[in-house]
Each structure stands twice: as C-alpha cells, then as structure tokens.
Design a protein around this nucleic acid. Sequence first.
DNA 1: GCGATCACG
DNA 2: GACGTACGTGATCGCA
Length: 929
Amino acid sequence: MATAPITKDSHLYLVDASAYIFRAFHALPPLTRASDGLPIGAVSGFCNMLFKLLEDLKGDDRPTHFACIFDASSHTFRNELYDQYKANRDEPPEELRPQFPLVRRAAEAFAAHAIEMEGFEADDLIATYARQAEAKGARVTIVSSDKDLMQLVTDKIVMLDTMKNKTMGRDEVFEKFGVGPEKVVDVQSLAGDSVDNVPGAPGIGVKTAATLLGEYGDLDTLLARAEEIKQPKRRETLINFADQIRLSRDLVTLKDDVPLETTLEDLAVQDPEPDTLLGFLEEMEFKTITRRVREMMEKEGALEAAPPAEDPIDRTKYACVRDFKELEDWIDRAAKQGFVAVDTETDSLDSVTANLVGVSLALAPNEACYIPLAHVDPNDAGDGDMFGADPPRQVRMKDAIKALKPLLENDAVLKIGQNIKYDLNIFAQHGIHVAPVDDTMLLSYVLNAGKHGHGMDLLSEKYLGHTPLSFKEVAGSGKSQVTFDRVALDKATDYAAEDADVTLRLWQTFKPLLHTEKVTTVYETEERPLVPVLAAMEREGIKVDRDKLSRLSSDFSQRMAALEAEAHEQAGEEFNIGSPKQLGEILFDKMGIEGGKKTKTGAWVTDADVLEGLAAAGHDLPRTIVDWRTLSKLRSTYTEALQAAINKETGRVHTSFSMAVAQTGRLSSSDPNLQNIPVRTEEGRKIREAFIADKGNVLVSADYSQIELRVLAHMADIDALKSAFKEGLDIHAMTASEMFGVPIEGMDPMVRRQAKAINFGIIYGISGFGLARQLGIPQSEAADYIKTYFKRFPGIRAYMDETKAFAKEHGFVQTAFGRKVHLAGIKSKGPQKAFAERQAINAPIQGSAADIIKRAMIRMPEALAKAKLKARMLLQVHDELIFECPEKEAEKLIKVAKETMQSAAGPKMDLSVPLEVDARAAANWADAH
DNA sequence: GCGATCACG
DNA sequence: GACGTACGTGATCGCA
C-alpha cells in the first residue's frame, strides 16, 4: 500500500460515504442498469463524485490523502447510552440495498481507501482522522453535508457539499447555528435532533439555543446558572431536563479518539489501476464517466510519463566517493555521457556565504554518488574542542575542485540541477563557471506554472511517486539540527546522491514535454539563459550606507516612543501599540466607534484604510497609530534588517532572486527582499538614499514607462491607446480626456487620478467594487466609470472576453511570448471563478512585461561587454534595472541600457507600441530613480 | 505556524 | 438577488 507522511502541505479528503449513499439515492433521479434493471443511481452519483474529487481538483485543493468512510453496523456505543438512539430510522428502501456493496466496490476501483470499523459510526472515524490530520498541520475536507459533522470545522477543517458544490467553513457554520463550530455540540444538545432521535430540551430550537449560549457562554455555565434565566418556561425546561440535555450532549459529541486500524499515512492517494477501474465502470454500464476516465488516463499517461516502474529508487546503490581515483572515474563517465545531474551540499541556505561541504553526481537512475569534501566528525560539537574529532577520510577540496572544473565548464557536457543558480554561486566561489546548464525547477516552471510549486520534494512526489529523504531526517530539526558537514557520511550519501538521482529522473520526465507543451522557446530564450545572469547579480550585491541606516533607525525609534506615549494618552490606557487586536478592542469596543468591520477570524479590521477613514471622521488615535505603524514598518523591515543583511566579507547586501515563485513569470526577491524598498513616502525615500554606489561609481536606474499598459494596448490591439503611446501622450490624462470629454491641457489632477485608477483596474481585471474602494467613491459611480471606459474602448472588453473564454477552454492563458500560466479555479463556480478570471486577464499582461525585461537582462551582459563598459547589473524590480558603474561610464551606460531594454521584445515580437525607458545616474538609488 | 498588516511593482 | 472581489510578491509582528 502507498503511504505518505502527513505534513502541513497535505490535504486529506474524508468522504462520508454512508450518508452520501442515502442522500444520492433520494436526490438523484432513479437510474437502472440497461441490461438487467439493477438500480445503480447512488453508485453512479458516488463514482461521479469520486472522479471529480480525485481528478478535477488542482493546486492546493488536490487531495494528498483520501478515504471513504462507511458505517459498519447500526449498533454503536451510543445505543448503549440511549436505547432510542436512531430508533426511528426506517430500513433502507429495497432499491438501495443492493447498491451498498457496489458503492464499496466503486471506492476500491478508484483506489480510494474504504474504511469502516465495527462499533463506530462513520462520523466518529471522520472525527478521529480529521483531528489527527489537523494536529499535524494538514488541511482536511470532509465531503458531507451532515450537520452532525459541523462541530469538527476549524480553520483547517472544512466541509464540502458536492451536490451543491458548496464549501462550509467557520462562517457558514456560524450562519447555520448562530454559534461557532466549537459550540455546535452545545446547540445540538439543547435543540435535539428528530432525525437521529436525540431528545434535547423540549421547546428549545437552534435559535433559542444560540441565544442562550450567546448569553451564558457555554452549556455547562448555562446549566449551572439556569436559575437566572428570565423567561419562566425556559428556566423550568433547563432545570428539569438538565440530565436529558447532558445525555444528548454525549450522543451528539463525536468520538475523536477511535483506535484506528488504518493510519493516516496509509490514506495516501494512489492512482487507480486502469483495468480494474475501467472494468468496473463498464460493468455498471456508465457511458459518460467511463469515457471521461479513459480520456483522463490517456492524457496522464502522456503528461506524466511515469518513471520506469522496474527502476525504483534504491539508495543502497549509491556510492560514497572518498578517494581521488574513484572521483576521476565518475568525472570521466560523466564527460563521456555528455550530461550529468549535479548537486552541492553546503552549510547554509545563502549561496553567497555558504561553504561547500560536498558534491553529488548522477549519471542514470540509481547510478549516483556523493563526494564529501568538508565533513567533520559528527561527534565534534563544533565548539572548538577538537578532542576526539577526527575528520573522516575524504578527497581534498583543492583536488576535487581542480578535477571537477574541466567537467563543469565543458560546454559539451550538460549540467542538470534543481535550482542550479544556487550551485552556480557555490562553484563560482571556487572559480568554477558552470555551463551549460539545465534546471528541473525551471522546466517544471515553464510546464506547470500555476498548477503547483516546483520544489524538488513536491516534484519527486508528484512525478516520480517517490518521497525523498527530508533534510530533517538526516540533519535533525529545531535545536538539535546540525549543518550538513556534521552529518555522518552514510546518511549524507543517501540524502545527497538521492537528490542528484531525483533531479536526473525529473529531467528525463520533463525535458521531452517542452515540445509537446510548446514551451521550448520560453525555456530556452528566457529561463535557461537568465540563470547565470541572476547568479552574477546575486554575487555582486549592492552597497548600503550602514551609518545612514543606523541614524534613521535611532530617529525612527525616538519618534515612535513619542507617538506611543501619545497613543496611550489618546486611548486613556496603556496597551500594546503593535497589537491590531488590542487596538481594535480599544477603538470599537471600549471607545464604541460605530461601523467597524471584522476579519474572518472575528478580529476588528484596523488596517490603514480603516484608520484613515476614522481619522477623517475626527478621531485622534487612528492618525497616531498610522504614523507609528509607518515608522515601525520602516524600522523593523528596512533600517534594522538591512544592516543585519550586510555581508561581512563583501560589505554589500546580496539578495536572492527566485525564478519559479511568481505564477506570471515575474521574479521575486528575498533574504532580503530588495524589490520592495520604500519609495512612495518622504520617509521611505530616505531608506532608498542609503543604497549607494561604491567609491568613484554611480548607480544607474532604468525603468520602463507604463510597460503593462503598452503591452495591453498591443495585445488587445487598441488603436486609440497605441497612437497615444506613439505620440508620447500622458496616457492617464488621455484616458481621462476620452472618458470625461475634458481637454488634456490644464486638466484637474483629481480627474487624471481617477483615470489612472481605472487604467490600473483594467490591468487587474476590473470590478466596480475594487475601483470604488480604491477611489473612495460609491460603487454605482465606479460602475458608471467602467461602463464609460468600455464604451470608449470596446476593444478592451472584447479582449477580456476572449481571454476568459480561452482560459476556460484550455485551463491556462499565455503571454505574448508563449509563456503559459495555468489557472486552477477557472472551471469552478462562484468567487473562485471570478478570481481566476481576473487572474486570466492580468497574467498575460503582467507576464508579457516580465518576459520583456527578462529578455533585456539576458542580453545586457553582452551589450555591456560590447560597449566595453565595466558596468554591472545589480537589481531588477519588475520594470526597473539598477546598475553600478564608474562615474565616467554613466552616460554611455544609460544609452546602452535604454537601447537594450527598448528593443527587448524583438525579434520574437514586433510590438506595435514603442517601449520607453527612463534612466538616470546618481550617487544613490533614491536620486537615480 | 498563521493571520493581519504593509512595503514594492 | 446576494456574494465577495481589484493583479503579483515577501517580511515582520502578535498571538495561539
């Protein structure tokens, strides 16, 4: 049986199968098998549901663990408590009885674990599994509409009614019962249940129960203080029927500690055996679903070419290479073969400072090795006390580097890695410039963006059906975690060689799919060549003025202290000014300000929008908080954190760019994030001023002007927008002029501001609500604006409709350069669909702009070299590139950078609008921007 | 570890 | 007729 650990990324589905059968039988039209009249309506409904759950769900919603839970018998411990429990139930109808065993067979055919236990109801098993999974941080979806299960709902556990396609979380439970899930039991104990024959308290229904609990808190308190109830009748009932209420509670409370026979891990989703499943469906004579299942299986066979099953991962076959001759042998074989998977092990996650600890190579499935280079005795505590600490015998670092260099730099040998930019930086520390490379993370990114993440463990699980050793398993976790150089060589070999092995297998899986999925060009022209460019930028880093940051920090601290004191005075009490919860209570509960909103967790919303509104209404405290928060943010996230991020050796800050995080093709930056350095406020700009050029150098910032609107004008083919850009008009003013019929000359800045918000709205997949919120105007007015906009630019609406239709048909959208962005929710209904539609509109625009700047970045090193410039590219901020160069070069650099950026769409795309780039040189980033 | 908040494009 | 909404990121904090 397949097993898989439950982690916080797991998603367990628990189907309340017995309840489903009854419901399907009554809700669905009666259906009989054509050949012999066997009733099969419930079986059909059940199969359709399973298929939908197992095959249709994508992304986060895709189950990792799955079980169908059945009632084993009608007699359970509840009958011992109360002999009338469920005593009013009729025998199941004649047409339903033969379907029970068929449904169990259906579950087996879908390879869905069918679980039942004598003496326990399905509900108790569901409760036990759900709570266990939740305790491990997993998400749980209970497929049922049974209100008895609603007590289980939490932030992690939701219910799904597949017939109504409705998800039930906290809010929905609250709507139904008037109390949160944790008090559902209390309500049910009072209200009783005629269906299950739970007595409850006579004359008290859900509404009254909720009211009472609202007043007294919980059932025990309510019963204890029943004397205080004002209404005589209710008081009497609660006092007289206290025992019956307590019994009811025992009946409705689900048992969540059933001694399970099948563990959670055993519920791992497994692929159905095609012959068994298709055989069963054909036997039932289900035409439609048989066809759909067959199509799905054919497609998956093509898409996820599973690894040769006869070659499962076998860690015992890995070699630990500890002498030089053996290393030379591996290198020879790799060179001969022409490709090799490579992975480095280090003592840190930061590729600029990390030390190389070992290298692993893989030549073929199971043919992999680990070459330890800097391991120490695992018993060495690392405290400098070298007693008993003999490093294990291993190849000398210097020798290994010398031997590996020709292989890693050999342009006839492809080096395959997972996130190989990291390894490039590690090897660069040792003077090795690895090329050419392939990256399995990027292969997955161009194939699967939007479907799922691209980390190795996830990809291995999904495409190889194999769970690699986790880092924690070999290095420990928490306080007892050690760096990799302290891991014993046998364990290190298992882990490291497996990573190379898995990488190689993923490459074999993904590489052929580039062509079938038509994403070769995106991979070859945008992703693969960008890797060394970004690696160099990360190594280069950017200089920051530590003293300036330090002075800003002190300044912010002082002003924060003053604001904090002021806030306490305005509040009339001391409170934690950094706690949104406490602030909300002071503003809306204590001070009694009306009109507050709550978040889905029940806390008051106190974000800047709300506080600005309150300040405008004449309250003093909100303004103080807003000011304090501004400074607090700047201090903790920037002035403090950036000082800590300065590299001791280089004296510069080195970010890490992620190429496979953003769904649209954008980069992201982290550790630290240098793509969100403040600029919008005066205080914020001071932080930008701390980003400086080295002595004798300047920073140059070059940014695309309105690139997303230009891309939109081109892609949607809007003549009015295109000519506006060609004529160099102020695009927001032009939009305002077209919409409101006012001249561009001497335009009211407020009118232009509104047009600007609309232009952004268009790019984001506009909604009246969003525009109204942004502009602070009534929704009706916003709707009118949008109407006017579409009337004036009908091509935009047509483009949006086409894009949505394409997304729905194909499940993805594309940028102008052929990058695919898959949209998980596009086929769902309700808010998920609306969200996916907005993504569908935004992704091609944002993604095409990302494509363009990537193309510019890739060409930049050669353009700089050709112009004989010493300039280095340091950062990318989505539509902006930051360089550093000798003062004297600045003018020439600006020219080269502009040309390269403005022509970056070609020759692949003949953009029908010009791309404008503004560039400036200065001593710091604020002035260059 | 998660939600709320806020910094950027 | 109601619902829930602007697109894409990452870091920090309080609080469970």
